[in-house]
Amino acid sequence: MRKQLRLSGSGGQGVITAAIILAEAAVTEGKNAVQSQSYGPEARGGASKSEVIIDDEKIYHPHVKNPDFVLAMTQKAADKYYADLNPEGTLILDDDLVPTSPAFKNIIRVPITKLAVEKLGKSLFANIVALGVLVKVTKLVDFETIKKSVAKRVPPHTVEQNMTALQLGFDAV
């Protein structure tokens, strides 16, 4: 079954890294995955977007259309990227950074960045908190798998904090 995700925010929030780790976890579990960065003018102005498609079948066209899940870490990203969401899909918002919810049926608000700052002292971990949220909500990969994928991608001395970040996100929804 094909699942399409879009992770969006602004440059430096680490949404691209989060997307890569998620795709990597899916591949570890034997699924097909493609991950791509922003295609097009929306990449301008510090906006950052990454898309992931996960499927048991082969994936050709790499562009996400009608995503099943959209993560938005800024108001601008939320307003822009929820529009083509699958009506049955889910919009996940950073509670503090996206004050105004777009008019969409299924919204989950999580204080992603706030959790990172309050529990780990750094907004730097927000993307991994977000990843924890995504794993819980999407049920696309096993929590144990994502833990391994995160550990593989992050600097060795930050593994412990990243595991905490992942758990924080996972437990927040």
Binding site: N32, V34, S36
Partner: peptide, 9 residues
């Protein structure tokens, strides 16, 4: 750029 920047299994 499509293939160069694409990640896949």
């Amino acid at each position: 750029e499509i293939v160069g920047h694409l990640r896949e299994n």
